[in-house]
Design a protein around this nucleic acid. Structure first.
Lengths: 227, 227
DNA sequence: TTAGTTGTTTGCGCTGGCGCAAAGACAGCG
DNA sequence: CGCTGTCTTTGCGCCAGCGCAAACAACTAA
C-alpha cells in the first residue's frame, strides 16, 4: 500500500546497471533551487521528470483561489508521465521544496526508451498504479473522515515519506507551513493551526514556524485509527 | 482531459488487427448479469479486466459504512491493472451495473503480452494517466466546490460517459439511485434528493426511481461553471 | 537595531449540509 | 390484485468547521 519511500532502483527495476545508466544519460539533468517552478498547470507538457535528490510538491488550483496539494514527490519518483501522451497539458504545478535535482526526458526520447525497454513501462505502470491507489484512498478519506483525523493521517503519511528519526521523535525534514498542510489535507489554515496547538498541549507534536516534529507518533496513529 | 468515452481501439491502439485479436484471445471472456461482483476490495488481485460491453462500477468503503463510488467503467476501459504487480490486493470492489461482458488476463499472461507488445504498455500508461488526472480533478472539486455544483458536475460527467441523446434531452441509460449519485459526488442521499427535486422544478432534469434524464444540459453546465 | 514581511494563534459568530424520522411512491412477485 | 421491499421526498434541528479580524511571533535585510 503506502510505501515508506521510493528510490532509483524502483524506477530501474529489472534493468542492468548499464542500461539504467544509459537511460539516465539520455535525459537532461537539472539542478534547481528551493521554490523554483519546474512546470506549471495548464502549460503544454513537454518533459517527464525523475527526481534524483530533493523534493517536488505537486499542486492544483481551483478557479477561485483554493488550492490543493496533490502530493510530495521525493527521490526515485516520477512527475509528469503524461508527457508520454500527445498534446497534453500538465494537470498540476510542480515546485521544488528544497534544493532539488531532477532528470527530464522529452516525449520522443521517452517513447524510444520505453519501446526499447518494456520493463521500464511496467515500472511506470507500477508507479502510476500506486499513485492512483493512494489518491483513491485519500479521496475516500476526504469524503468520509473528520478533519482532525485527516490531519493526523496526512501528517503520518508525510512522516513516512520524509521523516527523519531522532530518538523517539520524528522530524519532518522539510519546511511545511500550516497553509500547506491544510491544502494537503483538504481543510483550512485555521483548523490546522487549532488542531496542532491542541496536539502540542498533549505532547504529540512540537512545531516551530513551518517545521513540524512528531513527538509521539504512536499516539497519533492511535488517534487516526480510533473509531 | 475528460474524454466522452473509450473503446477497444484505445486499448489496442498501434497494434494490428491480428495482434489485437490474439491478445483478446489469450484472455478469458466472462458474461455477467447485472449486480454481479467481479472482484472485491481487499481480495488478492489475480486478474486484470477489459470491459467489452456493459458497465462496471468501482467502489471503495470506509471502515464505518460510508462508501465512495470511484468511477463507472465502460466498454474499452480497464479495471484492476494493479494485477500486473506482485502480491497486491484489489483496492476497490467492481460490480456490474447491467449485463456485462469482460475479458480477464492473469498476471503471468498480462506480463507476457506487455513484454511482447511494448505499445500495449504505453496504452495502459495512457489510460492510467487519464484516470489519475480525472481523480485529481475530482479531488480538487471535493475540497473546493459546494455540494450543489459537485452534483451538477457529477451528473454531467456521467452524462458524457453514458448519455443517450433524445431530442434536446439526454437520457442516462443505466439505473443510478440517489444513494449512488451521492456516493459518486461525495455527499448524502438526502442532499442529492433535495437538489434533484429543486432542479426538477426548474425543468433542468426529470427523474423516476433510479432513472435520470437531463432535460436542459445547457442550464446545468452554466450552473456548474457559475462563480 | 529597526522596519518590513511572512507565518501563526485564537476568539467569535455564522451556516452549509448532515442525518434522523416518517410518510409517500413505485416495482415486482405470488 | 394487494403485499413487501426498496427507493424517494421533505420537515426539522443541530454542529463541525469555516473564515474574518486582530494580535502576536519569528525570520530577513539593511
Amino acid at each position: 500500500m503506502d510505501k515508506a519511500g521510493y528510490n532509483l532502483t524502483d524506477f530501474l527495476y529489472g534493468l542492468s546497471k548499464k542500461q539504467g545508466g544509459e537511460i539516465i544519460m539520455r535525459g537532461t539533468t537539472l539542478d534547481l533551487k528551493a521554490g523554483a517552478v519546474l512546470f506549471r498547470e495548464g502549460d503544454p507538457a513537454t518533459r517527464s521528470f525523475l527526481v534524483l535528490k530533493g523534493r517536488l510538491k505537486l499542486g492544483k488550483v481551483h478557479e477561485l483561489g483554493k488550492e490543493v496539494l496533490i502530493r510530495y514527490i521525493g527521490p526515485g519518483e516520477l512527475a509528469a508521465m503524461i508527457t508520454v501522451l500527445e498534446e497534453r497539458d500538465y494537470p498540476v504545478t510542480a515546485e521544488t521544496v528544497g534544493e532539488t535535482r531532477v532528470v527530464g526526458w522529452d516525449r520522443r526520447t521517452m517513447l524510444e526508451i520505453m519501446t526499447k525497454h518494456p520493463q521500464l513501462s511496467i515500472n511506470m505502470i507500477r508507479y502510476s498504479t500506486d499513485r492512483l491507489e493512494d489518491l483513491q484512498s485519500r479521496y475516500l478519506e476526504l469524503h468520509a473522515e473528520q478533519v482532525e483525523k485527516r490531519i493526523a493521517r496526512s501528517l503520518l503519511r508525510i512522516m513516512k515519506q520524509s521523516g527523519r528519526r531522532s530518538g523517539d521523535e520524528i522530524i519532518i525534514d522539510f519546511p511545511i507551513s500550516r497553509q500547506e498542510l491544510a491544502d494537503y489535507t483538504g481543510t483550512t489554515l485555521y483548523t490546522v493551526s487549532r488542531t496542532l496547538s491542541a496536539w502540542e498541549k498533549k505532547g504529540w507534536v512540537k512545531s516551530k514556524r513551518a517545521r513540524i516534529i512528531i513527538a509521539d507518533p504512536h499516539a497519533l496513529v492511535l488517534f487516526s485509527e480510533k473509531v
